[in-house]
């Protein structure tokens, strides 16, 4: 059973199709990054999973429980951290956590113990008496995480938690997420900072215009071919770097992309590493004094842009499941 399971999910806001036939599963104990441009549908899907919104069609489950049919049970399993949340005036960090602990049904010593554990974990003890609306962005995010963890949820859904954080706060947040992942919690996290997601996520989910365009691990993405199916290599030589571009002009399946100080960046139109080895051998044979020849790892931003490029070029037809006709399926809700 998956921790999160979304099946053929649609969400319309009037004429706007915010989510368009999304299907994915996230196994227990994994960290999944959710990537997409603003307005791609990330927050809508996350809100549906958190039982804060309703699908027009399709289903969403948290630990096997349907979010529409049994929202109260889902709420006990899920911790929700929105991208932005206001803090209260005239209320300290301690009182803020106390309010949510009370609202979650904790009483007496158990409540105080739970607050203490969360404050220790998120390092909020020194801030206990600070007013919650006077905290920095990083501190606020830690407070938000603390609030989301109060009922010890199995699944944590975090919408852009790193947005607006300074580098130090980002490192702290990343550390907390790593610790939570080690504790076996399932974490579904959206972010614009793809490099950070790549470091901490077991899998990445790319969404564009309400449709999932990729679901896989970060390493595969980094090592994957680019938008025209090639693989990039960095070649450095001793002597005249112009030799590399001259050599490439005469070769089939090799394209010189960019000159660098001691050589250049080339694209080889194959995924096969033995063919790359052959090309290297030919270079050496043709007199190029190679000092470095290595496959370049793409960063995740490039990978994301490539995937979108492929979609635009029609190379990858990631068509969502067909929209059920009114006779074969019914909307779960209607917006009057």
């Amino acid at each position: 059973m998956s921790a999160l399971k979304v099946n053929n999910l649609y969400r319309y806001f009037g004429a706007l199709q915010a989510v368009n036939g999304v299907t994915f599963e996230i196994p227990h104990g994994s960290v999944c990054g959710f990537v997409g441009a603003n307005g791609a549908g990330k927050t809508t899907i996350m809100r549906i999973l958190a039982t804060l919104d309703y699908p027009t069609l399709g289903s969403a489950e948290v630990c096997g429980i349907n979010v529409v049919h049994r929202p109260a049970e889902v709420r006990r399993l899920i911790g929700w951290m929105p991208d932005h949340f206001g803090n209260y005036e005239h209320m300290t960090v301690l009182e803020y956590l106390d309010f949510y602990a009370r609202a979650l049904g904790y009483k007496g010593q158990e409540r105080r113990q739970r607050i203490q554990e969360v404050m220790d974990f998120t390092d909020l003890v020194p801030l206990a008496d600070r007013f919650s609306n006077k905290l920095s962005k990083g501190m606020t995010q830690r407070l938000g995480l603390g609030r989301a963890l109060l009922h010890d949820p199995q699944v944590l859904v975090m919408d852009e938690p790193a947005a607006g954080l300074d580098p130090k706060a980002r490192v702290e947040l990343k550390h907390l997420i790593r610790v939570l992942a080690q504790e076996g919690k399932t974490i579904f996290i959206s972010s614009h900072i793809l490099s950070e997601l790549g470091e901490m996520c077991d899998s990445l989910l790319f969404i564009n215009n309400g449709r999932i365009v990729h679901h896989g691990d970060a390493e595969t993405l980094k090592r994957g071919s680019d938008s025209v199916g090639g693989v990039l290599y960095d070649v450095q030589v001793a002597g005249d770097p112009q030799g590399v571009s001259d050599w490439c002009v005469l070769q089939p399946n090799v394209e010189f992309l960019e000159a660098r100080k001691h050589g250049g960046r080339i694209r080889i139109d194959t995924q096969d590493p033995t063919k790359a080895a052959d090309i290297l051998a030919r270079m050496v044979k043709d007199g190029l004094r190679i000092t470095e020849f290595h496959r370049e790892q793409r960063n995740l931003e490039d990978a994301f842009i490539d995937i979108l490029g492929r979609l635009d070029a029609g190379k990858e037809a990631l068509v969502p499941p067909p929209l059920p006709t009114p006779s074969s399926a019914s909307p779960l809700i209607t917006d009057h």
Binding site: M91, E95, D98, F99, R102, R112, I115, Q116
Partner: peptide, 28 residues
């Protein structure tokens, strides 16, 4: 002592919402 030990100003029987609003409202 931990600041958490001082969280005894309102009984558990009082609605959490009322506790929150009174804490905020009396300082307004």
């Amino acid at each position: 002592s931990s600041p958490v030990t001082f969280l005894t100003d309102f009984s558990d029987r009082i609605s959490p919402m009322l506790v929150k609003e009174l804490r905020q409202g009396m300082r307004a």
